[in-house]
């Protein structure tokens, strides 16, 4: 499905990152990252494995602390807010994990209810059921409501993982390798779902991937992480219109081989 034109407000950044640095022991992963994610935008972060793409979104969601730099998410500096403020902020951020991270011991229904009953205590049983049905319908998996995660396919798990984040109506979505390990048809379905989420739930998203088809189909802008910094940022064609030996193999592997 062709990506519909997104309604992006370039005057309203929801995430602003300046001079972000992160190291593990002696290994510098992020070396002064600068980035803006605008309201309504899908930004794809590309890069080789181990270049710190997942570290970046873990810092944005407060799962990791930066060593240096400023990370403003929805107007709040993630490294300076209290635990309570961080918890409130996280409700406004959806995180779709690489391996879905569904709770093994709970059914799909319980998985979806879990964040809702803990963060929206005033909701009635009927309202909770309605929310669960709405997000399941949005990901096209209403029939799996009483199934356990172990009974689902990889693609279904990914969709349920996305549904679980959508149930809290997040303003920002962070996708960690949404198409990793899936067959091409399911990848297309997940790409369409990411675009549908952007349109239907008016989210701004960061999509971490090294799947260029996913990047091309979902991204309004591409940011290429090279040597711990965003060295190429722009439209898909702009980023790959280069002879840079670090960038070319990405394109050639995905579209020529």
């Amino acid at each position: 499905m062709e990506k519909a034109k997104a309604d992006i407000d370039y005057n309203d950044p929801v995430i602003t990152i300046r001079g972000l640095e992160k190291s593990f022991a002696d290994f510098e992963v992020l070396r002064g990252i600068d980035l803006d994610l605008y309201q309504g935008e899908n930004l794809v972060v590309l890069g080789r494995s181990g270049t710190g793409k997942s570290v970046l979104i873990k810092i944005i969601s407060g799962l990791m602390r930066p060593d240096k730099g400023e990370v403003m998410v929805l107007g709040k500096d993630i490294s300076k807010i209290s635990d309570k403020e961080l918890q409130e902020l996280r409700i406004r951020i959806g995180f779709s994990f690489q391996n879905s991270a569904l709770y093994d011991s709970m059914t799909v229904r319980k998985n979806l209810e879990f964040p809702l009953v803990r963060n929206r205590k005033s909701l009635t049983r009927k309202e909770i059921d309605q929310s669960v049905e709405t997000v399941l319908d949005a990901v096209g998996l209403s029939h799996t409501i009483n199934q356990m995660p172990a009974e689902l396919s990889g693609g279904q798990r990914k969709r349920i993982g996305i549904a679980r984040t959508l149930i809290l109506n997040p303003e920002v979505m962070l996708y960690d390798e949404p198409t990793a390990g899936l067959d091409p048809i399911t990848c297309i379905e997940i790409n369409d779902l990411i675009n549908e989420v952007q349109q239907r739930f008016h989210t701004s998203s960061i999509i971490i991937t090294h799947d260029l088809t996913c990047a091309k189909n979902t991204g309004d802008r591409i940011a290429m992480l090279l040597d711990g910094q965003f060295q190429r940022v722009g439209l898909f064609e702009e980023v790959f219109n280069t002879l840079d030996a670090r960038v070319k193999p990405f394109f050639e592997y995905n579209f020529i081989q």
Binding site: K58, L63, I93, Q98, Y103, D104, P115, R164
Partner: peptide, 18 residues
């Protein structure tokens, strides 16, 4: 341990649950 390595604990944390 299995919840930690499959990121289920992180998933709880980012969904605003302690």
């Amino acid at each position: 341990g299995s919840m930690r390595v499959t990121e289920q604990i992180d998933a709880m944390e980012v969904s605003g649950t302690k």
